[in-house]
Computed example of a mutant assay.
Amino acid sequence: MRAIATAFALVLALGLSPALAQNDAASEGSPTTPSTDVNQRAPKPDVLYDPGLLPDAVRETRDKILEAALAGDLDKLRSIINSFPEPPTLTFGDQGDAIEAMKSQSNDGKGLEVMAILAEVLEAGFVHVDAGTPQDMYVWPYFAQYPIDQLTASQTVELFKIVTSYEFKEMQEFGAYNFYRVGISADGVWHFFVSGD
């Protein structure tokens, strides 16, 4: 079951819905890339901002992670990670120790830069995907599931709180948001904090 959840997390981390991923697999050999496919076929999801709309279990997990991230408290974050049967996916490779994985991704070498990104991501708008299914998930920021070429000016300003204009330009060329995103399932389990590429 965890393998299925991890595979689903990776599909979400790449900015695809499971349905689109299945369609892409079925049409292998098509010249259209999956990221472009997302922008052309996926409807714009409902973007939510109020954490009060989250189920209690999801809101509690999000709040705990956010508190640790804002404090730069890696020990508290480790405690949160260890509270789950399996650690969240933090890298697409062999991540080993979760906190060490975060430190290795952080330009400051201490994990604090990545903690700042984690906080920014969790303070952004979010989306609810695959509601009522075993893959029911809340994803931050909503850009991970939103057509990157259909952002309004105000949404682009929101995105610039998380990424630079250079990174945004690369995303436009790629066809989808490919920076850090967080996934928490409807039962409050933290599944991933990864950056797609």
Results as ranks from 00 to 15, higher is better:
150 Q>W: 04
114 V>S: 03
63 D>P: 08
139 V>Q: 01
185 S>N: 15
159 L>P: 02
33 T>P: 08
57 A>R: 13
67 E>M: 03
163 V>Y: 04
8 F>S: 05
136 D>T: 02
90 L>C: 08
130 D>H: 02
86 E>V: 14
118 L>R: 03
2 R>F: 09
84 F>P: 08
160 F>D: 12
184 I>P: 00
180 Y>A: 08
93 G>V: 07
43 P>T: 05
7 A>Y: 02
103 K>E: 13
107 N>K: 14
87 P>T: 05
17 S>N: 06
149 D>F: 06
119 A>G: 08
80 I>L: 15
142 Y>Q: 02
13 A>F: 05
15 G>V: 04
67 E>A: 07
76 K>N: 14
166 Y>W: 05
94 D>K: 04
35 S>E: 14
73 D>V: 09
112 L>V: 06
183 G>T: 09
186 A>Q: 06
147 P>R: 02
38 V>G: 05
64 K>G: 07
58 V>Q: 01
9 A>D: 09
59 R>M: 09
162 I>A: 01
124 A>S: 15
170 E>F: 04
34 P>T: 07
197 D>W: 05
169 K>C: 04
11 V>W: 00
194 V>G: 02
158 E>Y: 02
163 V>M: 07
13 A>K: 03
158 E>D: 15
30 S>R: 13
188 G>V: 00
6 T>P: 00
150 Q>N: 11
172 Q>A: 02
120 E>G: 13
33 T>N: 11
171 M>L: 06
2 R>Y: 06
107 N>M: 13
111 G>P: 01
63 D>W: 08
108 D>Y: 11
96 G>P: 07
162 I>K: 01
131 A>P: 00
23 N>K: 13
195 S>V: 03
44 K>N: 04
11 V>I: 15
43 P>C: 03
172 Q>I: 04
194 V>N: 02
13 A>C: 14
57 A>C: 07
175 G>C: 06
63 D>T: 14
160 F>Q: 14
163 V>K: 00
123 E>H: 07
70 L>S: 10
111 G>S: 06
13 A>Y: 00
18 P>F: 13
46 D>Q: 11
138 Y>M: 03
79 S>H: 10
181 R>T: 08
5 A>H: 01
163 V>G: 02
44 K>Q: 10
53 L>F: 04
21 A>T: 13
119 A>H: 07
106 S>A: 15
98 A>M: 11
34 P>V: 10
53 L>T: 07
45 P>C: 11
37 D>I: 06
57 A>F: 03
156 T>G: 09
40 Q>S: 01
44 K>H: 07
6 T>K: 12
184 I>S: 00
5 A>E: 07
93 G>P: 00
191 H>M: 12
41 R>E: 12
141 P>Y: 00
